[in-house]
């Protein structure tokens, strides 16, 4: 059984590609066969985050238009045996993606025995975002604890509940999860930032992970190594927990509270 997971958010810059990269690495690291697809036609970026930008020969649109086979376009990850990347096209023609074409690619990945296909959605609610979510079985909605991100996420939840194949067929709909990123327990503690519970209450969804704000995320994208692979990082641990929860494990949420500080640290900052 192939499970198709869309990583989406509505708003841009909240961490969809970072999340797609880390979740696909995390699943593949646990022995699953994973393909991660960049749906952001015209603005290819997943390849950079995955560190395979110089190995892109064929892209998603090439496959759809029959310029090459799917096998030729899938870029095999050099770190994890069972992980493959399908890059977005750099074409400016937004109509290059067709529903039929996307379906064909997903069917072929299913036939090839992939366990998971991660669809990295573009921002917005246009065609690319629509097609990224249309065939999904599950959705990871990436949200920052910030007003515009939360509102846009709710809009995306509305679309997931109506404009997807599962919603149209009425077979249970898409299973939705929230993933909070750029979370700062310190600012939550001082009342400057909405908490996990606040966001969860407003959107009424289960939270599958909370990734703390971390300088490691920028270093990871600088280096083209998904942050989950940086074992030293809290962001890595948080993503790995989220992957475990996707696979059905139940784990306590980490990094949601500020670590307790001693007297001196409190008085003199740290």
């Amino acid at each position: 059984m192939t499970e198709i997971i869309v990583v989406t958010s509505g708003k841009g810059g909240v961490g969809k590609t970072t999340t797609s990269a880390s979740i696909s690495c995390g699943l593949a690291r646990r022995g699953k066969k994973v393909a991660v697809i960049d749906f952001d036609i015209g603005l290819r970026n997943l390849d950079l985050i995955m560190g395979c930008e110089r190995r892109v020969v064929y892209d998603f649109v090439n496959v759809i238009q029959g310029d090459c086979t799917l096998k030729q376009a899938l870029i095999k990850d050099k770190r994890i045996e069972t992980l493959y990347v399908l890059a977005a096209s750099q074409t400016r023609d937004k109509d290059a993606l067709s529903s039929e074409g996307v379906r064909r690619v997903l069917d072929e990945l299913t036939a090839e025995g992939f366990d998971y296909v991660i669809c990295d959605s573009p921002a917005g609610i246009e065609k690319g975002a629509h097609l990224a979510m249309y065939f999904a079985d599950r959705a990871v909605v990436v949200v920052n604890p910030e007003v515009s991100s939360v509102r846009d996420s709710d809009r995306i939840l509305g679309l997931l509940a109506s404009k997807t194949q599962r919603a149209e067929k009425g077979n249970g709909g898409v299973k939705e999860h929230l993933l909070l990123t750029r979370y700062s327990p310190k600012r939550v503690a001082t009342g400057e930032m909405m908490s996990v519970t606040d966001v969860k209450d407003i959107l009424g969804l289960d939270v599958i992970g909370v990734v703390p704000e971390s300088t490691d995320v920028l270093s990871a994208s600088n280096a083209g190594v998904p942050v989950i692979l940086n074992e030293e990082s809290d962001a890595s641990r948080a993503y790995d927990d989220a992957v475990a929860r996707l696979l059905g494990e139940s784990l306590p949420m980490r990094f949601v509270e500020e670590p307790k500080k001693g007297f001196f640290a409190r008085m003199f900052g740290g």
């Binding site: 910030e146 509102r151 400057e192 908490s195 209450d201 407003i202």
Partner: peptide, 11 residues
């Protein structure tokens, strides 16, 4: 602290 304001407006 403005988190509560954000929460109310969003709700």
């Amino acid at each position: 602290p403005t988190a509560n304001v954000a929460k109310e407006r969003l709700r």
